[in-house]
Amino acid sequence: MTTFYLVRHGKTELNLSLRFQGGEIDSPLLPIGIEQAIQAGRYLSDVRFDAVAVSTQKRAMDTANYILKENNHLDGLTVRYQDKLREIKFGKREGAEIDHTDEQTAYLRQRPDLYDPTAFGGETIDSLVSRSTETIEKLSEEFPEGTILIVAHGVLLITLINSLIGKEKAKWREGGPLANTSVTIVEKADDYKLISFNDISYQTTTEEA
């Protein structure tokens, strides 16, 4: 059985300003985002990871670094940076203010089976889930009895988690959005099983720092 710890990156400037932050844009972690990552690291400090896979975007890499600095079992541990764990691409909407009255934005959040990003050159949900699932499958094959840390992004993680546990496409955003630096645990034996979801019980900082 492979155990995956899936963590969303810490809060960023674009998260705060409610702008599209997809796979082709980055913004720095806020002080609160750094603190969230440190607290997540302390929460997971005694977990012995066999591998770490991180999105190649800076907000995820920085979050992973803060988490791992708190870990007590780093000897021999390697971190893999994976393009296939980058956030969904929003095309021309990258960095734009989110319009909550927009039809495609509503579909992305509530009915991903209807989401069509063609008009603005974005990435499809099917593409996102395909590439992220491929990464998870390869890790589960390589570490069939391992414990794996994944640090990635909100849309990627919620759609990946829901698809892995067998939900239909229309419900791939169910339970989202994931909180920044939330921890979700999924086990892979014959099938994928959700153990804990969107856990931020360890967080003690709630105000901007």
Rank of each mutant, 00 (worst) to 15 (best):
R109L: 10
A53L: 12
I34H: 10
T124V: 11
I200L: 00
D116S: 08
H73F: 15
K11H: 13
V47Q: 06
L14G: 05
L77V: 04
I148Q: 04
R109H: 14
L160K: 10
G95F: 03
T12M: 06
T133V: 11
E142F: 00
T205W: 08
E168C: 08
R19C: 03
I25W: 03
G95Y: 04
T3I: 14
L178F: 08
A106P: 01
D26Q: 13
V129Q: 02
T147D: 04
K84D: 10
S201I: 08
R131G: 11
T118D: 08
R8P: 04
E145G: 00
A40M: 03
S196F: 08
P28D: 14
T124E: 08
V186I: 15
R19A: 12
I25G: 04
A189K: 02
Y202R: 06
L6C: 14
T204G: 12
E207N: 11
P177M: 00
D199A: 02
N65S: 15
F120R: 08
Y192R: 13
Y115I: 04
L194H: 10
Y43K: 14
V7D: 00
K188S: 00
V54E: 01
L77Q: 02
R48N: 05
D46M: 03
F4L: 15
K11Q: 15
T118F: 07
I136N: 06
G95Q: 09
E103F: 04
T181S: 05
K89A: 09
K188R: 15
L178R: 02
T63H: 04
L178D: 11
A60H: 07
K193H: 15
D116K: 09
A51D: 13
Q203V: 15
F49V: 11
K11C: 11
L108S: 08
Y192I: 09
F143W: 06
I165E: 13
L6G: 11
D46P: 00
E207G: 01
V129H: 00
D99T: 06
G176V: 08
T78P: 00
N162T: 10
E142Y: 06
A64L: 00
T101A: 06
V7H: 03
I98R: 04
K188N: 14
R109S: 11
N15L: 01
V155Y: 07
T181Y: 00
S45Y: 06
T133F: 13
G76E: 12
T2L: 02
L149M: 11
H73K: 12
S55W: 01
E187W: 09
K188A: 14
L44M: 13
I195Q: 14
S163H: 05
T181D: 06
T159W: 05
A40T: 09
L128D: 02
V52F: 11
D99E: 01
L44H: 09
L178G: 09
Y66T: 05
R80V: 11
V52G: 02
V52A: 12
E97Q: 07
T204F: 01
L68E: 15
P177G: 12
I161G: 02
